[in-house]
């Protein structure tokens, strides 16, 4: 179950609206926002493929300019792959 720490850049004038859109996703936790349009979010998914899809979907939100990854952990997925 991968976990990622992201800084999502959105239109600074439309932060609240962006947070609302992000809340519509399962597995997205919002930890904070600022006036420059930075949103600190943690994404959690069952596979890293799902995480990739989530990031793609977030990038499609009209107010979102970029999704920047800062931290990624997939230890249990690697263990599982190893076991197979």
């Amino acid at each position: 179950m991968p976990i990622g720490g992201f800084v999502i850049n959105v239109d600074p004038k439309r932060v609240e609206e962006s947070v609302e859109s992000l809340k519509g996703f399962n597995g997205v936790e919002i930890h904070g926002t600022d006036a420059k349009g930075n949103i600190v979010a943690v994404l959690e998914s069952s596979t890293s493929e799902e995480m990739d899809e989530m990031v793609k979907a977030i990038m499609k939100i009209e107010t979102v300019y970029s999704v920047g990854l800062t931290y990624f952990n997939a230890e249990d997925e690697v263990e599982k792959q190893k076991a197979q």
């Binding site: 976990i3 990622g4 720490g5 992201f6 800084v7 936790e29 930890h31 904070g32 600022d34 420059k36 930075n38 600190v40 979010a41 943690v42 920047g68 800062t70 931290y71 990624f72 952990n73």
Partner: peptide, 10 residues
């Protein structure tokens, strides 16, 4: 850890 790392960037 993920949240703290991302927050530290901004």
């Amino acid at each position: 850890t993920a949240a703290l790392t991302a927050a530290s960037y901004v």
